[in-house]
Computed example of a mutant assay.
Amino acid sequence: MSNKVILVVLDGLNYQVARDCMGYLNGLIEQKKATLYPIQCELPSMSRPLYECILTGVPPVLSGIVNNQIVRLSNEESIFSLAKSQGKVTAAAAYHWVSELYNRAPYDAVRDRFTDDETLNIQHGRFYHWDHYPDEALFLDAESLRQQFNPDFLLIHPMNIDDAGHKHGLDSRQYRNSARAADIYLSNYISTWVDAGYQVMVTSDHGMNDDLSHGGILPEEREVPLFVIGDTFTHAETTVKQTELCGLCCQLLGLEHCKPYAPEMIAL
């Protein structure tokens, strides 16, 4: 059984848009190579609090990362810290808030944008600080990290879907087409990742509304997708919580941990 994981967090991707617009991922489902689970994100439905939730399993109101303006290191054990402490190689191509949560805060672009330091929780990082940084470039950054360092855990976190939602809203061609574009980029890599022994999870932090924002309890803000691809997943019918994604990754990585997860999702 493989113990390597790629977690893709497509920022701001609403569940129904993922279901309607992402033809490649849904094609994998039709061929029994992937399963899609609906997830209700934790509250508030905002980015930095939910990065922390996904990567630590702790809801925002308990982690203390309750809005996007809180700039400090996480106080929780994360996938990165657990993996690094147990001898795994960690990497991320992600928005700079991830660096601030798990490596160093505040982010210094000159120091942190290109990170290679085995003493840090995210040992190999390619971080960006522009919401319009092209998803295509971000996936290239991620694949370069994968090929160069062969990480056990790789986080990939592009921002263009969220950026389109903030500019044009949920019910816009720009938002839907950003989701379609991400699906195309994923189609260039997923089979290669699976062949290299990775279990792949594709999810989102939160959705989007027609006010060009998110943060509340509307279904379109809270409902996000989880696609799972790989031979270690059972693809069973079950319910998954956002707070279980961290533990699921830890379990797939073979880490010792105390995080909640859905054991019925993983084949023994």
Rank of each mutant, 00 (worst) to 15 (best):
I79E: 05
Y128L: 02
L73R: 13
P60H: 10
Q174L: 10
A164R: 06
N150P: 01
A91C: 05
L73Q: 12
I65D: 07
L55C: 08
S144H: 10
Y37G: 06
I122A: 05
N121M: 11
R111K: 13
N103T: 06
L154G: 03
R48H: 04
D163E: 14
L155A: 04
Y128K: 10
E136Y: 01
E77M: 06
Y175E: 08
A83R: 03
Y175C: 06
V66N: 12
I122L: 12
Y175I: 10
I70W: 09
R173V: 13
I70E: 01
T90H: 00
P38C: 06
S78E: 04
K33C: 02
R72I: 05
F114D: 13
R104L: 07
E143D: 15
L120E: 08
Q69D: 14
L154V: 04
L36H: 04
L36V: 09
T119R: 13
N103K: 07
S78I: 05
D108W: 05
M159F: 08
E143Y: 15
V98G: 06
A94L: 09
V66H: 00
A93W: 00
L120G: 07
V98D: 04
H166D: 12
Y51G: 01
I65Y: 01
H157E: 04
L101N: 00
V58C: 11
S172N: 12
V61W: 04
S47M: 09
K33S: 14
N68V: 09
G165F: 05
Q174K: 12
L154M: 02
F127W: 12
P60T: 00
P151L: 01
L73V: 03
P38T: 04
L36R: 10
L140E: 15
N150Q: 11
L62G: 00
Y95A: 11
G169C: 14
W97D: 07
L82I: 03
M159Q: 09
D162S: 12
D171K: 12
N68T: 04
H168T: 08
S45A: 15
K84S: 09
L155H: 03
S99L: 00
F153T: 08
D152Q: 01
V71N: 15
T90I: 12
T115L: 15
D171Y: 04
I39W: 04
